[in-house]
Design a protein around this nucleic acid. Sequence first.
DNA 1: GCGACAG
DNA 2: ATCTTGTCGC
Length: 380
Amino acid sequence: MTTVRIPAGWPATEEQARAVQDRLRAQVVLDEPGPPPGTGHVTGVDVAYDDERDVVAAAAVVLDAATLEVVAQATAVGRISFPYVPGLLAFREIPTVLAALDALPCPPGLVVCDGYGLAHPRRFGLAGHLGVLTGLPTIGVAKNPFTFTYADPATPRGSTSPLLADTEEVGRALRTRDAVKPVFVSVGHRVTLDNACAHTLVLTPKYRLPETTRRADALCRKALREAAAPRKPLADRAAADPTRSWGRTLFERQSDPVTWAGRVLRAAALGQRRTPEIEAALEFAGDRDRWSHGREVFELVRRGWADEEQFTPEQRIVFRLAELVGKVAHNEAGPPPFFDHHAGWQIGPLAWRLAAAADPAVRDRIAVALGERPPEPLDG
DNA sequence: GCGACAG
DNA sequence: ATCTTGTCGC
């Protein structure tokens, strides 16, 4: 497995990313038929994320197009290079996908992407982007219609209907299993739409999604599991950390957990350098109307301390508290899926770790914000 | 102006 | 994409 760095000059803003798309899309080749279905190699690529740990894992799995047996596979891990923005997915996935493709011991043949090619607001989705950067023939097979419209294809497998941006056919809804929701096929690079659909049908003898996608999905999840630091079971951590049960009961006694978390954060941040992320979290905790956006606050704070090395241990604790404010608020008022409900339990122990190392005035202030002190002096 | 919106 | 419990089906 290879490790990826974010490429130099990689777009940092949405505006830059859109400019890159506008520049590169002229290089897409649409007038080649592409490899005949059922011959040579077909390669699936997919990506899995752990946003909390800022880890991304990609996989490329090469299948024999005739037998659908795995011929070769490779993975790569790296840091997340771009947030998820509809229309800019490629900037989040491509660096790691390229590394996985590079690590393959054989030519990939046709590359099947999890997403779109031509069917894209600027006609340059993930599959087209990957095709232009590698020169390989690519297609996109997506699970959802994005912003496009389509009529439901007829019931039997193999039926299609045009995927429309207004009246322009940008792809096709293709039924790969009888009476099951279609997939959405579009051209990436150097393949026609007819051929892309034919490939997709060859790749779906048993399931709705292409074997390439299924294999790559399973492999990148596994790579992600192995890349993320293995964690001890919950019970072990509870035994090793007596502050945990105190943190739990303290949190569960709060009738207004978000406001409480905000007070704790304010006390903890006192006297420390305030970053914009901390300011935002503090302001947020005081505004009940915004709690449903807790997840965004979490993500903002998480991005804010991406360069962990530049912060002191105390500042890192403040950042973690700010993240927890976002998590707790999201669990309290946001839509599912929720963060794990243990999140709030960490607030007390974390804040007290800071208090224990601080001077008596700060310690008192944190104790007041928490509402109590731990039953016995905690070290760490 | 606001929401929806591939993964 | 990710979080999640049970439930349905081959």
